[in-house]
């Protein structure tokens, strides 16, 4: 167990301190150059862009998931409603992204229908931009936000809402001043569970963003394949791993079950 999980991470940490080999791979001497390269404005920009897109996707996921969760918690067929959220999550991720390519591209369904209806003349540039990536991320990770939110909303005592109503709160007041504060742990867990995979995303930005939307995941992949600068790729991986770790520990300190 430890062998399969801990050793590869250790090797990546070591690689990040080595020099790039002439034909890929790594060589000595030990160096911190790779981490200095991270300060390069180009990479800083990619890094902030990744953070920004992941944060936007997380906020959208939670915003979309919350009303849905309220609906599921009140519905009579809770299990069916939940399964419907999870089901697409278990079908192939790659295929779900491809489905969006099919809809969004210039000759895709949306543009074909809009053109057929005479609403537009030239196809809308729907694919290969930040918006498409954001859409793909929200679509892909919505279940990650729904499940932890549902776990907290379900445990909420309905008597609390009745009490709020008795004390004169309107439904919206009760929502913002009772339900949402009480669900804070679930919201935090949902945020972390969505943010971390969004930050490290590779496929979504690669297929829906094209060459215009380069995120940190794509840079790592590129360093290990085409660019053959393993130490720098490893340095980027270390930074990403550290971020994931810090977020996970922050969540555990609050005593939340992530899984």
């Amino acid at each position: 167990m430890l062998v399969t999980l801990a050793i590869p991470s250790t090797i990546v940490c070591l690689y990040s301190l080595l020099t790039r080999g002439a034909y890929g791979g790594v060589e000595r001497p030990w160096t911190l150059e790779n981490f200095k390269l991270l300060g390069d404005p180009l990479y800083l920009m990619i890094f902030f862009r990744s953070l920004w897109i992941a944060a936007a996707a997380t906020a959208l996921c939670i915003g979309l998931a919350f009303p849905l969760v309220l609906f599921i918690a009140r519905s009579r067929r809770k299990n069916l409603c939940l399964s419907l959220v999870i089901l697409p999550f278990w079908t192939s991720f790659l295929i779900r992204i491809y489905a969006w390519m099919f809809l969004l591209r210039d000759t895709g369904l949306i543009n074909t229908v809009l053109r057929g209806a005479g609403l537009i003349h030239d196809p809308l540039p729907l694919l290969y931009n930040d918006g498409a990536v954001l859409l793909g991320l929200v679509y892909g990770f919505l279940p990650f936000a729904v499940l932890p939110l549902y776990a907290t909303v379900e445990r909420l005592d309905p008597a609390l809402l009745e009490a709020a109503a008795d004390l004169g709160a309107k439904p919206l007041d009760a929502l913002f001043r009772v339900t949402i504060p009480l669900c804070a742990p679930g919201i935090r867990a949902a945020a972390i569970l969505t943010f971390v995979p969004c930050l490290g995303t590779y496929l979504t930005s690669d297929l829906l963003g094209g060459s215009k939307t380069i995120l940190i995941g794509n840079v790592i992949q590129n360093q290990f394949t085409a660019a053959r600068d393993w130490p720098f790729g490893a340095a980027l991986s270390v930074v990403l791993m550290m971020l994931a770790l810090v977020l996970m520990f922050a969540a555990r300190r609050h005593g939340e079950e992530l899984v």
Binding site: M1, L2, L5, A6, I7, P8, S9, I11, V12, Y15, V196, P197, L199, G200, T201, Y202, G217, I220, Q221, F224, W230, G233, A234, S237, L240, M241, A244, L245, L247, M248, L258, V259
Partner: peptide
């Protein structure tokens, strides 16, 4: 704690990082 920690870590590590770690390994 170590075993549990490494299990959770592998669940939250971005796929691309797991991939390059295994390749390097």
């Amino acid at each position: 704690t170590w075993l549990a920690g490494s299990l959770y870590l592998s669940l939250v590590t971005p796929e691309i990082v797991t991939g390059v770690s295994l390749l390097a390994f």
